[in-house]
Amino acid sequence: MLIQLIYASRASRVLGPADIKDILGASQRNNARAGVTGALCLHDGIFLQLLEGDRSAVNVLYHRLLQDPRHRDPAVLDLCEIPHRRFTGWSMGLIAAVEANRQLFLKYSRTAAFDPYGMSTATLRSFFDEVLENVRWLE
Rank of each mutant, 00 (worst) to 15 (best):
V98M: 07
L77P: 02
N134G: 03
L48C: 13
M92H: 09
I46F: 05
F47G: 05
Y62I: 01
N30T: 06
N134F: 06
R85I: 03
L40C: 12
L5C: 09
Q103A: 14
L124N: 10
A96K: 13
R10V: 04
L42Q: 07
L65A: 02
L42P: 00
R85C: 05
F105D: 00
L132K: 12
L79R: 08
N59W: 10
I46P: 02
G93S: 15
F87V: 01
G53W: 00
R70C: 08
S12E: 05
A39L: 10
T111D: 15
D44F: 00
I46E: 07
T111K: 07
L132I: 08
I20D: 11
A96R: 11
A96C: 04
G45P: 06
H71D: 04
R10F: 00
S91I: 01
L42G: 00
T123A: 15
W137Q: 05
G16C: 12
F128P: 04
I82Q: 10
L65S: 00
S27L: 07
L51F: 12
C41H: 09
A75P: 02
A34K: 09
S27M: 03
L51D: 06
A34H: 11
I20T: 09
C41Q: 07
S27Q: 02
A39C: 14
L42F: 11
V36I: 15
L65T: 01
L2Q: 09
I6R: 05
S126Y: 03
D22G: 03
R72V: 13
I82V: 13
L5M: 12
R55V: 01
L138E: 13
G16D: 14
W137K: 09
R72T: 15
A11Y: 01
F87R: 06
R125D: 08
T121Q: 14
D78S: 12
V135N: 10
L138R: 15
Q103Y: 06
A112S: 15
V14Y: 08
L106E: 03
E81I: 08
H84M: 08
T123F: 05
K21A: 15
F127E: 01
G38N: 03
L65I: 15
E139K: 13
D129W: 09
G89M: 10
M1Q: 04
D19P: 07
M92P: 02
V58D: 05
F47E: 08
P74W: 14
R29Y: 03
L104V: 08
F128G: 06
V14S: 03
C80I: 09
A18M: 12
R64H: 11
Q67N: 09
R86H: 14
D129A: 13
Y7C: 07
D54G: 15
P83N: 10
F128V: 02
F127A: 03
R86I: 05
N101S: 12
L5N: 03
F128Y: 12
S91H: 11
S109N: 11
G38K: 06
C41V: 15
F47Q: 10
S56I: 14
